[in-house]
């Protein structure tokens, strides 16, 4: 391990971000290398300086926040978010219906039953594909909407 490599790793090493064998190898090199130790000391000095610049928030901050909070009253869940809890199951059903329809249409299209033949009589293959894609897209969009709704409803529960 040469000085160039060690000095490239010093920013991480001094912050405790290097672990395991690599940390041991760096420590070994530092024990024997004065220039690298000097650079490590600079990082340590910076950390101490930054820690020394920490400030303490005065009572004024608490007072200002609490004055505002008391004016606002108890935290409330927005009504529109609360209603999502009721909407979420409906959104899931809305997502399931087009997907179910797509499944049934596909199954019928591939079957050779008289009912399927009657249903798809005169309908071209391209039309069937287009219909399937449209229904599938609606289903996926509704599924995504349902997922968003459940997520939002969960956040307020």
């Amino acid at each position: 391990m040469n000085c160039e490599h060690v000095q490239r790793k010093l920013a991480e090493y001094s912050a405790g971000l290097v672990q395991g064998d690599e940390r041991l190898r760096l420590a070994e090199h530092l024990a024997a290398c004065e220039p690298c130790r000097a650079q490590l000391a600079e990082y340590r000095a910076l950390d101490e300086l930054l820690a020394g610049e920490r400030v303490v928030a005065d009572e004024g901050l608490v007072r200002k926040v609490m004055t505002e909070v008391r004016v606002m009253g108890a935290p409330r869940r927005p009504v529109w978010l609360l209603s999502l809890e009721r909407v979420a199951p409906l959104a899931t059903v809305a997502a399931a219906l087009p997907l179910l329809a797509l499944f049934v249409l596909t199954a019928l299209n591939w079957s050779s039953s008289p009912a399927a033949d009657a249903l798809f009589a005169g309908v071209s293959y391209a039309h069937t594909i287009s219909l399937g894609l449209a229904v599938g897209a609606c289903g996926l969009a509704a599924l995504f909407a349902a997922w968003l709704t459940w997520r939002a409803a969960e956040a307020v529960s």
Partner: peptide, 18 residues
């Protein structure tokens, strides 16, 4: 910084449901 800290606390209170 003090304004930001104040606004952060107030927003945290208002958005606690999140």
């Amino acid at each position: 910084a003090e304004d930001i800290a104040q606004e952060a606390f107030i927003k945290a209170y208002r958005e606690l449901h999140r």
